[in-house]
Computed example of a mutant assay.
Amino acid sequence: MRVNGLDEKLDVEPWVSLLDALRERLGLTGPKKGCDQGACGACTVLADGVRINACLALAVQYAGKEITTIEGIATGDEPHPLQAAFVRHDGFQCGYCTSGQICSAVGMLAEHAAGMPSIVGAEELSEAEIRERMSGNLCRCGAYNGIVDAIKEVAS
């Protein structure tokens, strides 16, 4: 698979999750193991640009795919616009969920731009629309207002 722009060859058992392969075999510590059940979003990464819970995905399913973790979304020394906005808007406190939140936001903005509907159904990214689309990512510290403000800034 290709991970953060680099070709990686992994020899893993068929039951190894993508999260465990990224963390334990490739040493990428950005995606976090929160609940290990797909409920918290701390492990969110992008697979061919689509956000997924890496804890629920088997690594072998992603052979030949492009995987992007938080370590791979910046451009050189320049942070991704969402990373910079999270800093400006205090979109994190402890930081445990931040990598998943940012990867999810990158995927969410792409989904919205592609016209994928949500339950809210708003055409523009209102606060309610952002909160609905980001509802799979939990923040135990409650930094949701900063997260929403950061996403709204980048979306505009």
Rank of each mutant, 00 (worst) to 15 (best):
R51T: 00
I52W: 05
N53I: 00
N53S: 13
A54M: 02
C55D: 07
L56G: 00
A59W: 02
V60W: 05
Y62R: 04
G64R: 10
G64E: 08
K65W: 01
E66H: 12
E66N: 14
I67Q: 09
I67G: 11
I67Y: 07
T68N: 12
T69W: 11
T69K: 10
I70D: 09
E71K: 08
G72T: 06
I73M: 14
I73K: 05
I73V: 15
A74R: 14
T75C: 01
G76H: 02
D77G: 08
D77H: 06
D77A: 15
E78H: 07
P79W: 00
P79I: 03
P79K: 06
P81L: 03
P81W: 01
H89K: 11
D90C: 06
Q93I: 03
C97N: 09
T98M: 08
S99C: 15
S99L: 01
G100M: 08
Q101E: 13
I102L: 07
C103L: 15
S104V: 05
G107Q: 06
M108K: 01
L109Q: 11
A110H: 10
E111Q: 11
E111K: 02
A114K: 13
G115E: 11
G115S: 12
M116K: 14
M116P: 00
P117M: 12
I119N: 13
A122L: 02
E123K: 14
E123A: 14
E124P: 05
